[in-house]
């Protein structure tokens, strides 16, 4: 390893990256999202997707779903770093439990005429996407599914006349009767 002149030890890490979905239950108080995001930016972690909403308003609980990538050591760090924040109740690695369902919703705007419109509707039907807005030259489709399915749908719409996409990010929940 070629070591440049530095007061720090610079090392190459070659562990492969993994993608994990984390569910984080937090106290819904001012600044809590900033804390979580600040942790990721401050420590150089990745956010692939982030979904936040209050889930139990009586108890002021919000659920944050984060899709992140990193080496196994980094993923472990992220979970510990999240868990030690004062307003964080629980961190569950949905990927490790292998028993989770992940869903995302996207609204996809497509513009086109003639054959393209027919093709768009045919594909939407195959993906069980719904038409939620239509003009003589456009559709807005609503599609729900896991990230891969939505990516696939968007890729198919591109040659037909994709205008824009709005996505919610991933929400995840565990299978079976137990809560997190």
């Amino acid at each position: 390893m070629n070591q440049p002149a530095s007061a720090y030890f610079i090392e190459d890490r070659h562990d492969p990256n993994e993608t994990h979905t984390l569910s984080v239950l937090v106290q819904n108080e001012p600044g809590v999202l900033a804390r979580v995001i600040g942790l990721f930016s401050g420590r150089g972690y990745n956010i692939e997707s982030l979904t936040v909403s209050e889930t139990e308003s009586q108890k002021h609980l919000s659920r944050i779903t984060i899709v992140t990538t990193g080496t196994p050591m980094v993923i472990e760090q992220i979970k510990h770093q999240l868990d030690r924040m004062i307003p964080v109740y629980r961190v569950v690695d949905m990927t490790l439990t292998r028993r989770s369902i992940e869903r995302e919703l996207a609204m996809v705007k497509v513009r086109g005429q003639g054959e393209h419109r027919v093709e768009a509707l045919r594909l939407a039907d195959a993906f069980r996407a719904r038409v939620i807005d239509a003009t003589t030259e456009s559709f807005v489709f609503e599609i729900t599914g896991n990230t891969d399915k939505i990516n696939q749908f968007i890729d198919l719409m591109r040659p037909i006349g994709l205008v824009e996409v709005s996505r919610t990010g991933v929400a995840a929940i565990g299978r079976g009767p137990e809560g997190m």
Binding site: M73, E76, Q77, H80, D83, R84
Partner: peptide
């Protein structure tokens, strides 16, 4: 006392 210190730099 801090779980985030575990396996941060050294396994």
């Amino acid at each position: 006392i801090d779980p985030s210190s575990i396996n941060k730099n050294i396994r």
